[in-house]
Amino acid sequence: MSIIEARGLSKSFMQAVKEPGLAGAVKHLFIPKHIEKIAVQPLNLSVEAGETVAYVGPNGAGKSTTIKMLTGILMPSAGSISVNGINPYKKRMENAAQIGAVFGQRTQLWWDIPIVESFSLLKDIYQIPEPVYKANLDQFTELLGMNEFIHLSARKLSLGQRMRADLAAALLHNPPILYLDEPTIGLDVSVKQKIREFIKKINQEQQTTVMLTTHDLGDIEDLCKRLIIIDHGSIIYDGSLSEVKSRFARNRVIFFQVGVPMPELYNLLSQTPGMKLDRQNEQEFSVSFDRYEYTASEVVSRVMKHGEVIDFRMEDANIEQVIKAVYDGNLDLNQKGE
C-alpha cells in the first residue's frame, strides 16, 4: 500500500454571503445566507514512499485544503485518508508524530521564543532521542546556515530566515513524510537554492516522502519527479514530470549569434509556418519552433546555409509554458500525444 492514500477525498466550506455595506451586514445578522463552496472535489491520490510530488494549480485550486486534510488539520467532508496506515483526522496525534509540515504563509514556531529553545521544546514534544536531536540540529544548522539567527526569537527573523528555521523544525524528528505548502514563497534566489538543496538531500538520504505545493516552477523542476495538477478542486493531471516535458514542452528555442546580418534569412524564417523569429539586434536572434515539426539540426543547418554562425545555444524544454497553458485552459495534458 502507498504511504499516502486518499480515496474520494473532498472538502466543502460554508461561506457566508453578505451584501455589501452596513445594511447587508445587518441583513445577514437576521437572515444569514451561506453557500457551499466545494474546495476539493472527490479525488484519489496515492503517493509511494520516498517519492517527491509536486502538487500545483492556480490560486484557489484547493492545494492547501488538500494538504490540511492530509495533515489532519481539517476534517474531510467525505472520503478516506490513510497516511502510513493512520487516519490523520481520527488519530491526529499519532499522525502528527510521523509527519513534518511547513506552511510558507505561517510559521509553526513560537513567536517570542529563541529558535534554539523552540527546537528544544520540539525535542520534548516529539520525544526525540538526544543523539538524534543533536546530530540533526548540527547538520541542519550547517546546511541551512542558521548560525547567525538561531539565538533570535521568531518575531525577529526575516522571511527567509524564518522559513529555514521552520523547515528545520519540521524535520528534527526525522518524519518519514514531509508536506510543504509554498516553502519558497517570497524568498531570494540564494535562500531558495539552499532550501531546495536541503529538501533534496533529506529526500535522498532518508527516503523522506515529500509532497510540495508551489507557484515557483523552479521548485518543481529541481525537486520533483512527479507532477499532480489540480484545478477547481479536481486533479487534472497526475504523472511524471519528464513525460509532461517531452510530450508537451513542444516549443524549442535556439539562440544564434551571426557574423553579418542576414536580412533574407530573417524574411524567410518569419514566413515559415511553425517557426518564430525573435530578433534581439542585428547579429543576434532566436528561432522558436515546434519540435514535432522540425528537428533542431534542420533549423541550425537552415541558418548556416545563409552565412557564418559564430555561436548558438539551445534552450531546454520549459515546463513553465506548459503549466501556464494548462492553467489558461489551452492545454489538456490527458490528451493522447501525437
Binding site: 490540511k68 495533515t71 489532519g72 488539520i73 491526529r92 496525534m93 499519532e94 502528527a96 508524530a97 509527519i99 509540515a101 506552511f103 505561517r106 510559521t107 509553526q108 514534544i125 516529539y126
Partner: peptide
C-alpha cells in the same frame, strides 16, 4: 486567525 493549525500539527492534545 487559523492559528489552531499549528496546534493541530503537533502530537500534543
Amino acid at each position: 486567525q487559523g492559528e489552531l493549525d499549528r496546534y493541530l500539527l503537533r502530537p500534543v492534545p
